[in-house]
């Protein structure tokens, strides 16, 4: 059996050695390696590690995403007041610069870790992992991660969260989900915020916003609220309470859940975990027309 005369080539392995095969080696020594592995598999591996940390302490991790100024921090302030004495909360804040948001949260008596990303437009699993060293997970019920205000980049990075909540303020336009489909497709819950301003904005329709979310094949609930004036906050708080309960039950069963975000599916992640190498053997075949 040798590579010289070709006597080790059988009908069973011949396809591997042909120009499109995994073991093809051109006469000039060029090697083509088929991989089919997610480009962010290292981030996804660390995100799974973060998620395992959260689960081991029964903590629900919620990632808040929106454009800048949609009211993420104001929502957190109102949420902390509403759940005071009932849930133990901590917040990881992501911004390019300043501790301002973390200070607003700390002023409410809740621990907050500020991540300053410098010029990075999103949080990734590594940044969150580093921040977790400053968070007392055993003493928590909910960890909120307030992502960098941006409707593009944060959608591509799994942080280890269980749920994605996307805020759309009524000053932004009800067609945002049609303009930023990758982000809104990642939502487990969409919050229409600052609805107290609807009285003076005649061009934002919550129904139209919801129709744009449904057009993305999303079943995420769409909830209207005003963090400053109060209406709708009870539905958001009710959603959080039921998520915390559901998560405790999942953890008790030894299960977890990933958010709606699904860049190329769970199967690739599993392939990476099992194969620990290049997932060509375990990943699904290329899709037709792809």
């Amino acid at each position: 059996m040798c590579d010289t005369c070709g006597c080790n080539v059988t009908p069973g392995n011949r396809h591997l050695l042909e120009p499109e095969g995994k073991l093809y080696r051109a006469p000039d020594g060029r090697v083509a390696v088929h991989v089919l592995q997610g480009l962010l598999s290292e981030n996804d591996r660390l995100a799974a590690h973060n998620r395992a940390h959260f689960d081991s302490h029964g903590v629900l991790a919620v990632n808040l995403m929106s454009s800048p100024g949609a009211g993420k921090t104001a929502l957190l302030e109102a949420t902390i007041s509403a759940l005071s004495g009932e849930m133990r909360i901590a917040v990881v804040e992501g911004d390019l610069e300043t501790e301002n948001d973390a200070e607003r949260i700390r002023a409410r008596g809740v621990p907050a870790v500020q991540i300053c990303t410098g010029s990075a437009c999103h949080l990734d699993a590594h940044m969150v992992h580093d921040a977790l060293h400053q968070v007392d997970l055993p003493g928590l019920d909910i960890l909120f991660i307030e992502n960098v205000g941006n409707l593009v980049c944060p959608a591509s990075f799994d942080l280890g969260q269980h749920r994605n909540v996307i805020l759309l303020s009524v000053t932004e336009g009800d067609d945002k989900p049609a303009k930023y489909p990758v982000m809104f497709r990642a939502a487990d819950l969409v919050l229409l915020t600052k609805t107290d301003l609807l009285a003076v904005l005649d061009d934002f329709s919550p129904e139209r916003a919801e129709r744009h979310v449904r057009a993305l094949a999303s079943e995420a609930p769409v909830v209207s609220l005003s963090a400053r004036k109060g209406p709708g906050m009870d539905r958001w708080i009710g959603w959080l309470r039921s998520e915390v309960t559901a998560h405790r039950e999942r953890v008790a069963r030894g299960e977890t859940r990933r958010p709606a975000i699904q860049p190329d599916g769970e199967h690739l992640h599993q392939a990476h975990e099992q194969g620990h190498g290049h997932a060509g053997r375990l990943a699904p075949p290329p899709r037709p027309g792809g």
Partner: peptide, 10 residues
């Protein structure tokens, strides 16, 4: 929705 490394030629 793919973001895959498909092939590397070495």
């Amino acid at each position: 929705d793919e973001m895959l490394l498909a092939r590397v030629e070495l």
